[in-house]
Computed example of a mutant assay.
Amino acid sequence: MSNTPEVVLCIPGPWESSSALAAEILASGTGYILDGTLLRDTETGFACELVLQRADPELATDFARAGPHWAATEAMADIAFHTTVAYLVGPGGSRAAADAMMRAAAAVIDAGGQGVKIDSTGIAHAPAYWIDMCEQLDALTSHRALVVYVAGADVYSCGMHNFGLPEAITSADDKTGAADMLRFFTRYLLEHAPQLADGHTFSVSEGKQVYRVEQVAPIDYGPGSLFNNPYGAWRLSPVAQEKKGNWWTRNRQ
């Protein structure tokens, strides 16, 4: 599709210059090289843009806001002392593309990067945790890394456009339970690529609440926002009657 969204990853670090970063990437032995403004995997040929910018005095605050799960750690404290910020920019739109961007960011972490903030999602991860997720990409850890769940008037996902997939939205009084259900649903979309249509139904498991799915417009974050999803969204609405038969059905109800 012509409007394939970009994956943008923000990585603070101690590098004084692009040449210093290039030297660290080469010395780390990960198989990546920094060729001008292109970070390249010499084994696969994958390349993404790397833009190195000066330190951002607001970045430590931004990371703490986007990574509350590690805000009190020493790794988060280190970000206040970053020298420069590497921005990795590349096309999303598929699991393969998202995984490739994650591996590229891991190469920058191995060269001294202090964490990764996904500017196209709004979540930040500690460096060791990022490396751990990249070592388990076959287990779909990119879903955990690149997708968040937001509770407002509705509960909704953000970040599925990194994989070329729609977001998911629902309404519920139990915001935590709704987020857990959407997490299961969006992972199912990524792992199994079901052919959904309006009226199909979904449940986490036999005996659990059944939802009817409907294609809707995604959350609009405003013009030019990296959070916007061009692939739309699925709204999941609870079905009152008890589900019968298989836990997943494509039959219209």
Rank of each mutant, 00 (worst) to 15 (best):
A96Y: 01
L226R: 06
M76Y: 06
W234K: 07
V204P: 14
T37P: 01
A100S: 15
A22Y: 09
W15E: 10
H69M: 12
E191W: 02
E167Y: 05
A193T: 10
I109R: 11
M76T: 12
L38W: 11
A128D: 06
T201W: 11
V213F: 04
D154S: 13
P14W: 03
C48T: 09
S120E: 02
I131G: 01
A104G: 05
A86Q: 01
L165A: 09
A96T: 13
G115W: 01
P68G: 06
V204C: 12
L189R: 12
L190S: 12
E58R: 13
A139S: 13
A22Q: 15
Q209Y: 09
S157P: 05
P223K: 04
I169Y: 03
G112Q: 11
G90H: 09
V213M: 15
V7K: 09
S171M: 00
P12C: 00
D154E: 06
I169F: 13
Q53M: 11
D180V: 05
F184Q: 15
V51L: 15
A55R: 07
A100K: 02
R54F: 05
L165Y: 02
G29R: 00
A153M: 13
T186I: 15
E49I: 00
S17C: 01
P238L: 11
G115A: 12
A96R: 04
V85Y: 10
H192F: 13
P12M: 02
P14N: 04
